[in-house]
Simulated scan of single mutants.
Amino acid sequence: MDTGAAESGSDAEAKRIDIALGAELRGLRSKRGLSQDELAKASGISKRTIVRLESGERPMGMDQLYKLCRALRIKPSQLINAVEAEVGIE
């Protein structure tokens, strides 16, 4: 049984989610007038990690999700719902 195609599709979907999550994070940060440095200080997450999250280069862990949402003063569900709408998850 060839699972390579299924894994590849799953990897592609995960990458789309990472990119959408990063774009939404960047948009929320900008909307609140915060620089990446300011968000890093407010969240306790390094600027380098924020850069990588916003570019979709790195997947976001649950701990990072909560820290970033707390710093942005939003509920994690707000960020997740926006990503679900972007990638077409219902």
Score class of each variant (00 low, 15 high):
Ser8Phe: 13
Arg73Met: 12
Ser8Gly: 08
Leu21Thr: 15
Ala71Arg: 09
Ala23Cys: 00
Ser8Arg: 15
Ile74Phe: 07
Ser10Trp: 10
Leu68Pro: 09
Val83Thr: 07
Arg26Lys: 14
Ser35Trp: 04
Val83Phe: 07
Lys67Met: 01
Lys47Ala: 12
Gln64Cys: 11
Arg48His: 05
Leu25Glu: 01
Arg26Phe: 13
Gly61Asn: 02
Ala20Gly: 08
Val51Asp: 07
Glu7Ser: 11
Leu79Ile: 03
Ser43Phe: 07
Leu79Val: 03
Ile45Ala: 04
Asp11Arg: 15
Ser10Ile: 11
Arg73Leu: 11
Gln78Leu: 12
Ala40Trp: 03
Asp11Lys: 14
Lys31Phe: 09
Ile17Ala: 09
Arg26Leu: 13
Leu25Pro: 00
Arg73Pro: 03
Ile19Trp: 06
Thr49His: 10
Leu39Glu: 03
Arg52Val: 01
Arg29His: 04
Ala82His: 09
Arg58Ala: 08
Lys75Met: 12
Ala71Phe: 08
Asn81Arg: 13
Leu53Gly: 04
Lys75Ser: 14
Ile80Arg: 04
Leu53Asp: 03
Lys31Met: 11
Gly27Asn: 15
Ile45Met: 04
Lys47Asn: 08
Asp37Gln: 07
Leu68Thr: 06
Val83Ala: 04
Ile74Trp: 00
Arg29Asn: 05
Lys31Tyr: 09
Glu57Asp: 15
Met62Cys: 11
Arg26Ser: 13
Pro76Val: 06
Ile19Val: 15
Arg58Cys: 06
Leu53Val: 01
Glu13Val: 11
Ala23Leu: 08
Arg48Val: 13
Ala40Glu: 00
Asp63Lys: 11
Leu21His: 02
Arg29Pro: 02
Glu57Tyr: 10
Asp18Phe: 06
